[in-house]
């Protein structure tokens, strides 16, 4: 952030669609969102498709010598990201109920996600 003297605010939406552990897309998406929050951008974070597997409670990455992504996701709120959504249909298709999820998720319909995308300046989808 060297070029601009006055900080600008952009609405950046992250659609996290990958299951955790098997590949690193979920981590990349989280890292980008945290950086955006550090630079005080207006961040939306959406779990969609297989991405909803990231928000299951009770993960233990240590079993495969990895960091537990579920714990890392809890830092979203610490970084001031409050608009965290999970797609209702993605959960239903995977037989995941709300009680199995980490706290702080707003479950929304796909229409709401369409509107969030429309209102965003930039969308990262991975």
């Amino acid at each position: 952030m060297t070029e601009n003297s006055k900080p600008q605010k952009s609405r950046i939406t992250f659609i996290s669609r990958a299951a955790p552990y098997g590949q690193n897309k979920a981590n990349l998406c989280l890292d980008m969102a945290l950086a955006s929050a550090v630079f005080e951008q207006d961040v939306n974070y959406i779990f969609f498709g297989d991405g909803v597997y990231q928000i299951l409670k009770g993960q233990d990455g240590s079993a495969i010598e990895s960091k537990t992504l579920g714990n890392a996701l809890e830092t979203l709120e610490l970084y001031g990201i409050e608009k965290i959504y999970a797609d209702r249909q993605s959960l239903e298709e995977r037989d995941i109920s709300e009680s199995e999820l980490l706290s702080g998720m707003q479950i929304v319909d796909s229409d709401s996600i369409t509107k969030i995308i429309e209102s965003s300046d930039t969308v990262f989808n991975l």
């Binding site: 952030m1 060297t2 070029e3 601009n4 600008q8 952009s10 950046i12 890292d31 980008m32 950086a35 955006s36 550090v38 630079f39 951008q41 300046d121 930039t122 990262f124 989808n125 991975l126």
Partner: peptide
């Protein structure tokens, strides 16, 4: 450099295109 440069690009570009 760090991810700040990506955030900066998102803010200051008219279009940001991802390839993966």
């Amino acid at each position: 450099a760090g991810l700040g440069q990506l955030v900066d690009a998102a803010i200051h570009s008219d279009r940001l295109v991802n390839f993966g």
